[in-house]
Design a protein around this nucleic acid. Structure first.
Length: 822
DNA sequence: AAAGCGTTTATTTTT
DNA sequence: TAAACGCTTT
């Protein structure tokens, strides 16, 4: 997520910083600070970037209250413009509360206003509030918005992701249960590397014991707080016994390397709270008010944390929507929502049912799509918004035509000028679908950005970070393995094997063994490594020891310089190829991240940097300000909203995904995924699918998604057969589908190539607001204007409007959201 | 030790 | 298609 600091957030932070620096620091007297002393050391914002941009105690000293206009501190502003349900959710602060928040119902608003209410009206010390989110982005947004409402105290809040909060507490208190304070966090790749090492040691075949499958079993166990020992005792069949063996070894390997994986962060915190009552008590006392966002996505371990921390004062408020639970494959457990009322006696349940986001057409469609799910609480979502346009369903000949159609539609809508590209998103089930959109958007010269190419998963970034991790935690053998021969240093697998053997014989870590070689110490155990390889290792060891020393003296950015220089990595990357250049550019970007990190808080440690980077997600990447179409998976789109949404690839096997069609529960999740996608749209929704699609290089016929059956026809426009057939079972191919692509249902012969997409021909009666020349209108962005002329565009209107001091605008009635003024 | 070549496999991925 | 992996050759 750190990258994202380089965007708008960074700019804003930099401004605040400058303003703060410009002020005197003599008004220091704050009571929050005293509060904090009382509660022991400061946790602060666990937000990574924001935390360190503004060191907590300085906020008050800096007189931030003067910077923010006084009106925001008014309690009225906090409770103003909330509907009755929202108001109850904000002001019910004694006792447990379960908020069921439908899409677009003002959930974030409720949470931020609740916090502001606690601080401003109930005079709760900020340090007594704990707010947990799932993404850094959500946490950051929360801080930003609370800051507007309660500028003084915002910095004293504990707001962060589950994992960030756990990591922070464990780093400080973990020693009590044997966790080194210098632990580093193992990501997916590290996990795989450790498992593979374990398999190798056991002499097990990777083919018969796929590391991914093993990891998934282990992760599932950790998610429900089953440790390796317990797993072994309860293993009931042979497969489980196998897993148990690997699980045990895996944990040992992690522990030896002072590594915690993501699941460990959660499970270890629970262990800590269970085994150390004094620690538990301290945190329970501190956190009087606990809030949890996206509660439907919590797993058992996270729920245990919430239960325990919240047990002190019993003011736990959770917000969620089981219809938007799309991470069960990551062990999120919807039952947490159901169990909440049971586990927190006296829970008040508040349902937010009014949708402020979408047209009633879109909301109706969404309700119909989600309705067949059995695992849900019945809700009655409603909206006072207008009906808006019908939903467009489009059948493309293949994935190229699909992307071409989407591009053309976006161009058409953008030409109407009411629509900015940043208000458009194209969503799909799998990341691989993005490729064809990128290709065609490039051809159309349509600006776009793909959310999800994970910056921190790139080889070069991981390599460089591994060097940093190795500086901080020299037991981190995963990182050592990664970089010991990158760039090539003549250290191959044989040398490494000998090195491990030798280290084991001496009873020391691999890094220590290298150190021994580097300093030329004599050893009791003879070294089985060739002189040449010994030299190579010694050289590497000396480099690392220099860097390790540097890591204690330099800020992260300067340390990075040293790493790139002294390891030869910079030179290694700059090999003259285009790819090398691209990789180097990525490293430069990481350097920029580090620069910002060091600049905003020179005191911040390498540990903090590594933690931020390890816990950084990449939905964070999403930058709403760029003038470009967003390409994004349905999963990553959760929590976002756009004026216009295209959901592509709605075919059997893709959505629902082929791996999900066997299982009823998984099918329900696919349905929720589509529901999430639909409810992202504010004004217009396009659903597309392809009759043929190439996947894995193989072309094949496709059937429209079964979910089309649940889409009421009167909400849809378009000729696509998915919405023409009556009660047809799409899961079974019809005679027509099996025939050639020129079958009549497809509307006669279709060119196989970039066909001009059939426009939205159906003139329908459902017209949006009708404008007439001479009328005075108001536009949300341009203000008041006068209609010059009007032209029909299918069932839409292109309205030419003159606004004072602005060039004449041509706007599409359906998009511009203009109102006629009396 | 490193480069080259055929084989295999293919969701989603808040952290 | 493409990337990741393991085996073979240089």
């Amino acid at each position: 997520m750190f990258v994202h600091l380089s965007g708008a957030v960074a700019a804003r932070a930099a401004n605040l910083w400058r303003e703060i620096e410009a002020r005197d620091e003599d008004e220091y007297d704050d009571e929050d600070d005293q509060q904090d002393q009382r509660f022991g050391s400061h946790v602060g914002l666990l937000l990574g970037s924001t935390t360190r941009i503004i060191p907590p105690p300085d906020w008050a000293a800096a007189g931030m209250g003067d910077i923010i206009p006084a009106m925001f501190q008014d309690t009225n502003a906090i409770l103003d413009r909330l509907n009755p349900a929202q108001l109850r959710a904000v002001t019910t602060v004694d006792g447990p509360v379960l908020v069921l928040a439908g899409p677009g119902s003002g959930k974030t608003r409720v949470i931020t206003h609740r916090i502001a209410y606690l601080l401003g009206e109930k005079h709760a010390p900020a340090s007594s509030v704990l707010a947990v989110t799932f993404t850094n982005k959500a946490a950051r947004e929360m801080v930003d918005r609370v800051r507007l409402l309660a500028p003084y105290q915002a910095s004293q809040l504990t707001i962060g992701t589950f994992h960030a909060i756990c990591a922070r507490i464990l780093r400080r208190e973990g020693a009590a249960i044997g966790i080194a304070p210098t632990f580093t966090i193992a990501d997916d790749d590290d996990q795989a590397a450790v498992i593979k090492r374990v398999l190798k040691e056991l002499n097990w075949d990777e083919k018969r014991n796929p590391p991914r499958a093993l990891l998934s079993r282990i992760s599932a166990a950790k998610s429900v707080l089953i440790g390796p020992r317990e797993f072994a005792t309860s293993a009931s069949d042979y497969a489980d016994e196998q897993v148990a063996i690997v699980y045990g070894r895996y944990q040992e390997a992690l522990a030896a390397a002072d590594l915690l994986d993501f699941d460990d962060l959660l499970m270890s915190l629970v262990n800590l709270l269970v085994e150390c009552p004094t620690v538990l008590e301290r945190y329970q006392q501190r956190y009087v008010h606990v809030l949890v966002d996206e509660f439907q996505d919590t797993n058992v371990a996270q729920y245990a944390i919430v239960r325990r921390l919240g047990a002190g004062h019993n003011n736990t408020c959770v917000v969620g929507d089981e219809d938007q639970s799309v991470y069960s494959w990551r062990h999120a457990d919807i039952r947490n929502i159901l169990n909440f009322e049971r586990d927190f006696p006296g829970t008040r349940v508040i349902v937010l049912e009014q949708n402020y986001r979408s047209t009633s057409t879109i909301l109706r469609a969404a309700r119909k799509v989600i309705a067949p799910n059995r695992q849900r609480k019945e809700k009655s979502l409603f909206t006072e918004n207008e009906a808006g346009e019908r939903i467009v369903v489009f059948e493309a000949y293949d994935e190229n035509e699909e992307a071409n159609y989407v591009a053309s539609q976006i161009e058409r809508l953008a030409a109407g000028q009411g629509l900015r590209l940043s208000d458009v998103a194209v969503m799909y089930r799998t990341n691989s679908q993005s490729r064809v959109f990128e290709k065609l958007f490039l051809r159309h010269r349509l600006p776009h950005k793909v959310v999800g190419m994970r910056f921190y998963e790139r080889k070069e970034i991981r390599d460089v970070l591994s060097y940093l991790r190795l500086c901080y935690n020299h037991n981190d053998v995963t990182s050592l393995d990664r970089v010991i021969n990158v760039p090539p240093r003549q250290i191959g697998s044989k040398t490494l094997a000998d090195l491990r053997l030798w280290a084991a014989r001496m009873g020391v870590g691999v890094s220590d063994a290298i150190e021994t070689l580097a300093t030329g110490q004599q050893t009791q155990v003879p070294c089985p490594i060739s002189a040449r390889a010994q030299n190579a290792l010694a050289e590497f060891g000396r480099t690392m020891s220099v860097l390790r020393r540097a890591s204690r003296e330099l800020v992260v950015a300067r340390l990075l310089d040293q790493v790139l220089e002294r390891t030869g990595y910079a030179e290694f990357l700059k090999d003259g190829t285009e790819e090398g250049q691209a990789r180097w550019d990525n490293v430069r970007e990481l350097l920029t991240v580090a620069e910002e990190f060091s600049h905003y808080d020179p005191e911040s440690s390498l540990a903090a940097f590594l933690e931020d980077v390890a816990l950084a997600g990449d939905a964070d990447e999403y930058d709403a300000s760029a003038e470009a179409v967003t390409l994004i998976t349905l999963h990553a789109a959760k929590g976002l909203e756009f004026d216009v949404v295209f959901i592509a690839g709605l075919e059997e096997g893709i959505c629902p995904h082929s791996r999900s069609v066997e299982d009823e529960r998984q099918l329900e999740e696919e349905r929720r995924l589509l529901y999430v996608g639909i409810t992202r749209a504010r004004r217009r929704l396009f659903l597309t699918y392809a009759a043929r699609r190439s996947q894995f290089g193989e072309a094949g016929a496709r059937q429209p998604s079964r979910f089309f059956q649940d889409l009421p026809k009167d909400l849809v426009q378009g000729t696509a057969r998915a919405v023409q057939g009556r009660g047809r079972d799409w899961t079974r191919p019809s005679a027509a589908d099996r025939s050639s692509p020129t079958s009549p249902v497809l509307g006669g012969s279709r060119p196989s190539h970039p066909a001009p997409a059939p426009a939205l021909v159906e003139p329908t009666a459902a017209a949006p607001t009708v404008f007439r020349p001479g009328e005075r209108v108001s536009h949300p962005r341009f203000g008041q204007g006068v209609v010059v002329s009007v032209e029909r565009r299918g069932d839409d209107q292109e309205v030419t409007v003159a606004f004072p001091d602005l060039p004449i605008k041509r706007l599409l009635s359906s998009l511009a959201n203009m109102k006629v003024l009396a």
